[in-house]
Design a protein around this nucleic acid. Structure first.
Lengths: 219, 219
DNA sequence: GTCTATATCGCGATAGAC
DNA sequence: GTCTATCGCGATATAGAC
């Protein structure tokens, strides 16, 4: 028996490193050229093996894509909804979390490749037979729930709580962000994603920064 | 010499009729099974020819899809924005046109196949190299413009005109409708598209029916 | 001009050797 | 765990029949 058993908490095996390398390659290529334009052979070549090797680590091209996106998703969700990935973590104040949400929108504007990828996949995944269908269904369910709670918390943080239905606002906010991405991808200069989302929030009376749009945090 | 020459104003050639038959078949099959699940061979078989024959009338599968959708689009647009397709036509009152807009949303809920199709294609078409890219870019540009005008007209039809930026509201409304479709396709029972859109309009103070949601036109 | 038949390509996926 | 070989399929290009 080797002493490695109780060695260190993490011990990345060769397989795990290959897997990670494949994910990195897939992320880069998908973000650059989209899903359909990239073949498993392209990804495999970029990661230094053959397409059959890739399929040893992932059941298929679609599940590879799903993992790329869920990884990205987890990073974004962590900032706005820490409770999802780290149940024990104390959440920041609602206002701060809202700022993080619009921050995600703003940051998305700097990674059009990934935004395009996500937009395309979420559309494809509406097909019940799609490999990522369950993932997206669950994703929206969780986001609707978490956003509903967040909106509700924001409501009560304002002077006179605005009369809004948190569950409805959550659906609207999600739809607004998704729909804006499509328009923005088609014509970036015609659609200011962050401003348009903030305008929606401000008019609901939910934006902690109120009408102040110039100075953000340093003011 | 035959008398057919001056027979009737329109004389659909065999080619045109075949083309129309292909479009009908494509619409039916796409709406039933989605885009990816239907092959050119399926469409060709349904229309009574081979896949190569189809490609004589359309440059590719994607442009076939684009034509199917633009046909559908034109029908919807005609009711809300008659000016687009029939420049001379007098427009209905703004309030009536808004009702037609929410009517389109409601009607979409009865044709999930076409909604799925549109959602998928608009996402795919964000790719600049996609055959339908220009079509969608133009579609959104026109819709933004027309919706901006409509919102502006609605503003002034209300008692004290609400303080909204028509151009921003147009973008939000478009994004809202698109984004809701994705959520609705994933989980129809969790997202009431029409109500969610109407809630948005009501809170803007733009819905002519105000808070009355039960009785629609017959009240 | 309208369509069919065929040949070829690249893809995702699988099986089995190493 | 990775390879080579191979399969079936959808999409495309070309040649030529009607």
């Amino acid at each position: 028996m080797s002493a490695r058993s109780q060695d260190v908490p993490r011990r990345p095996s060769k397989g795990e490193r290959t897997r990670a390398r494949i994910l990195d390659s897939a992320t880069e290529l998908f973000a650059r050229s989209g899903f359909n334009a990239v073949s498993l052979r392209d990804i495999a070549a970029h990661a230094g093996l053959t397409h059959a090797g890739v399929l040893h680590h992932f059941p298929g091209k679609d599940s590879l894509l799903a993992e790329v996106l869920s990884h990205r998703d987890r990073i974004d969700a962590q900032s706005v909804f820490p409770g999802i990935t780290h149940p024990g973590t104390p959440e920041p104040a609602p206002a701060e979390r809202l700022r993080m949400l619009t921050g995600v929108v703003a940051r998305n504007a700097s990674t059009p490749g990934l935004v395009a990828l996500y937009t395309k996949l979420s559309a494809e995944a509406t097909d019940p037979g799609h490999p990522a269908h369950h993932y997206f269904k669950e994703r929206y369910r969780v986001l609707r729930e978490e956003l509903t709670l967040l909106v509700d918390a924001l409501r009560e943080a304002v002077d006179p709580p605005p009369v809004v239905e948190p569950a409805v606002v959550a659906r609207q906010l999600l739809a607004l962000m998704d729909g804006l991405q499509t328009q923005w991808l088609l014509e970036p200069e015609a659609v200011a994603m962050e401003d348009t989302v903030r305008d929606y929030l401000v008019r609901l009376g939910l934006d902690p920064d109120g009408g102040v749009r110039e100075a953000d945090v340093s003011g």
